[in-house]
Structure formats: structure tokens, C-alpha cells
Design a binder for these strands. Sequence first.
DNA 1: GCCGTTTTCGGCCCGACTGTTTTCAGTCG
Length: 580
Amino acid sequence: MDNRSITNLLAEAADLLEIDGADSFRIRSYRRAAEAVESTTLQLSEIASDMKKLLEIPGIGKSMAANIQEIERTGSFGIRDELLKKYRPTMLDLLKLPGMGPKSVALFWEALQVASIDELEAAITAGRLKSLPRMGEKQIEKLKKGIEEYRKNSGRFLIDDGEMAAEKLIAYLREFPGLDILTPAGSLRRGRETVGDLDILVTGPACAENNVAAAVEYVAQYPPISSLLARGQNKVSFLLRNGLQVDVRLLPESSYGAALQYFTGSKMHNVSIRQRALKYGYTLNEYALARVDDGTPVAAATETEIYAALDLDWIPPELRENNGEIEAAEAHRLPALIEQEDIRGDVHMHTNATDGRNTIREMAEAGLARGYAYIAITDHSKNLAMTNGLDDERALEHIRRIREVDEEMEGRIRVFPGIEVDILADGELDLSDEVLAQMDVVIASVHSLFNQPEEQMTERVLRAIENPYVRILGHPTGRLLLRREAFKINVAAVLRKASELGVAVEHNAYPDRLDLCDRDLRLAKELGCKIAVNTDSHHTSHMEKMRYGIRQLRRAWLRKEDVLNTLPADAFLAALRPRP
DNA sequence: GCCGTTTTCGGCCCGACTGTTTTCAGTCG
């Protein structure tokens, strides 16, 4: 079994233990083990038989190692199986509703035998919740809204989950001789923050019409398939264990470009392109661009030739949303979009001084390994008690240690001292100006009281960035995907003010909290905001998530010169708001 | 359940807010 699946099983056990009211430290052990499995670079399936190696992973002790071995043998483990006898797996969905914790799940189960979102909805409609303790009108209303929100988002997966599933499948398909070109299409290729399903397009000699059957059979044998939905001549559809639907299409090489264009979308982009084709006397479908009159194919093998036949430059998939990209392609004015390689530094990350996993030095080494010229260490401040946030005194000590590491790295990579300072309810910051003055990178972020009314929330942030030491506004929209709605804030007003003050705004690259959606990013650019893209890494492995941030920047039509941390180290610091 | 040691068990991130209570349990970050 792959690490990701083991991670999920351990995390699931932690949730079930919590519903069961188990010892909180024991629960935390399962969570930590899940994180350890997720972040280790070792393939657990390869070392599962080696108890010693398993125990070397921090957070994995004797019984957790035994659990992992059992998972490798049987696909599950004792405690999880027992808990699943007592409870139902659908209860874990209930935990995803805002305001629902393990205690409420347990209560609903014991009092009403409610074990799923559907059952909860029915219980609410029937008025059965009112009889329960602490279930007032507001609470019930909150649940109703939560269910609605959940329904809207469920069925979609975050882009990194989609990408990982695609990579695994593609690796499997490559094993089959004669499958040469394998490309994910659809929203994954366009870099959307969530994907509804996976479209994998495949071509090569094995996809030729007369012998494709063997390849189709091979696809249908993909081990992680949980249920096979359809199996046609050249298409296989199935569900993975996590519910993600996958369509694999095996196409002849001659029409691969047309299929890629067709299945990449977006729908609106394709509508416009097909209209354009008609004006040229062509018709476009997933097989070819062809003349309307006699059906003679004009272009089909590559996307480039199809766009070219319509007098268009090839359009990067991230731009295919019918947002002016066709006009730009016609005028040869498509922007040179930012690339991953343009990023020179990652300036928001945490260490084990607060809630990160690694040391300053380890983060620096990881940044160096990624080819960065600089990073900034920006741990939490004291108001985030749960993260062991830094107070003034500890912050000063931390700066000293960061400077030491900067010295140790001997210029191979610069390590800037910084802080992610908390914006309090009234717009004050929770560290003193004297301390902030010593930081190169001061990121101000909201971490609490998300339910303030919009006006108050906006006012609070505007006040905070007035503080002259603030140089970057952290997650300016507080946008958390799939979990809850963003907090209410006037994004335009905040961006405008940031631009005026010269405060940079951050685009958090991490897929599950993409702060600025492409529309907000475009707005930020229009308003002349300085934009920095950061991973907010809490572990060296998180730095790789930068690529998803880049996808979003590209979707917003941003170029290298639109993003602050494409600059060399000194120029980057110089481009930040000047210190008083 | 893990870890580190004081080697056999005690410590392990905690404070604020909410909606419900009428003194606090549950959730969140």
C-alpha cells in the first residue's frame, strides 16, 4: 500500500478514537504517526517487514509499526476494524461539517442513531435535534448551512490529490509497452484548485484501432480501482477508493491533439473555439478539425496545429477559460506566464520553534536543494498559543538563531529573519514594534475571530497594515477550500489599501488554502499590488507545493515580473515596503 | 501511543470564543 493510503487509515483511526472518547494523547499519537507517514521519503511498503527501519521514523513506536505491518498484510488494522464495528465510516463525513466535532458526532449517534450527513439532514427536518442538549436554533441553523456547503463542494478534490492520483495511474500505464504519451486533461491540466474527475488521455502504438483491446484490458486491471463504471472500445471509467472518478481514453496518435484540446476544456473556451472554427468553414470535435463541406481533416495530431489553423497562437491550458485568451492569441499578445523556475525564494515558513516540524537549518537546506537564493523564517507569534507562538523575548532569540544559520550557509542561500504576526480583533499586532523592526519579513495574518462582520473584519485588517513594520499581508482572503466559507472581508478594499501602502499581498500556494483565487489575483495585479507566492511550509516536504501556487498565478495571467519573489535576494528586500 | 529518561513512568501545544447555559462543554486554530 502506498504511504498516502496508510496516512489516511491512521488519520481515520484517530478520528474514530476521538468519537470513541479515547485518551487525547493517544489520539494525538495516531495523528502524529499519520503525519510522519505522509512526510517520510521512505516507501513504507518497501521497508514494512523491517521493524527496525519503521521504528527509526520519529512518531512511529512499537504498536504503530505493528499497525503499519498489519496494514501492509491485510489492508487494515485491529483498532480500526474494532472501531468500525462500533461506529460507521460515514460518521467521518460528519466531522467535516463546521461546528461538528467528535463529541457531537458521538452524541448524535447515541441519541438518534444518526451516522451520516443524509441522516443528519433528515433528523434536522424532523425536528429531532431540538431534544438534544446544547442544540439551540443557531446551532441547528449552522449545521443546515454546513450541509448545504458540503453538498456544493463534495465530489470535488483538491488539485494535489488529483495530481497524485494521476501520477500514480500514469506510472502504471507506462509499464504497458506501446503507451507513450500520457496526459491528464480537464481541470487538472488547466490548474484549477479543485478537480471533479480525472481525464487521462493516452496514445502510442498500442492505441491503434486494431490492437487497442489489450491496452484497455490492462487499464481495467489497475489495482486501486474500487468499482469499474464502464469499459468501452477505447475508454475505461472507474472510481478510486476515495471516490474520485477517472476516465482513461486510449486514442490513435493521429487525433491526439484534437482529443487533448477537446478534453482540456474549459467548456466555455471550447464553445468559443468551435464558433471560430465554423467561421473558418471548419468543424472541431474530439477527433479532428475538419472542413465542414467535405469533412477533410485540417489538423488533428497536435494542439499547436489546430490553434494555428484558426490563426491562433497555442494557448496555455491555464488560460483556457474564455477570459480574453482567444483574442490575445489572435493578436499574438498572450503573456509569457510565470514558471516554477522563476521563483527565487520562499518567504513564509515555520520551524519547530512553533508548529513547524524542522529546524531553521533544515528548512534552509531544503530551500537550497530547491535552488532558492533565499528563504524567510516566519514563525507564529504568541497569540497562537496552540502553536507555542513566540513572544517578544523568544522572537528576539529566534532572530539571533536565524542569523546564525544565515552565516552558516555562507551565502549559498540567504535566510531572512521574519515573523507571521497575528492580527488581533481590534487590528493591533501581538508583538511590539521594537521587535518587528528587527525582522526582514513581517507577515501579518488573521488567525482568530473569523466571524466578525465584514465591515469590522475589513477595518481590522486595514488597521493592521497601517503598522509601518508590516511588509506582507498573509492570506488576505482567508480562503479555505472544501472546509468552510472564507471569512467575510472586502478583498478589493484590502488590496487597494495594500497597494497604496506598498504592503505586498501573499498568495498562499498550499492547495487546501489557496488564498487568492485567480479573480482576486487579477484584481491584485490591476491595483498594482506587490504579490509574493509562498508555501507557508511547516515541513521541508511542503515546499514542493509551490507548484500549485504557480498554477494559480498562471491562471491569473501573471508573468515573472508581476511576482516579488522572482527577484534576487537583495532586490527582493529592496522591493518590500521600506522600513520607517 | 510516543518519547526520553529521573529505566518504568510521567509528560505530552493551550487559550479564546460560541451558544448554550446560568457555570460550562465543545470546537477551533
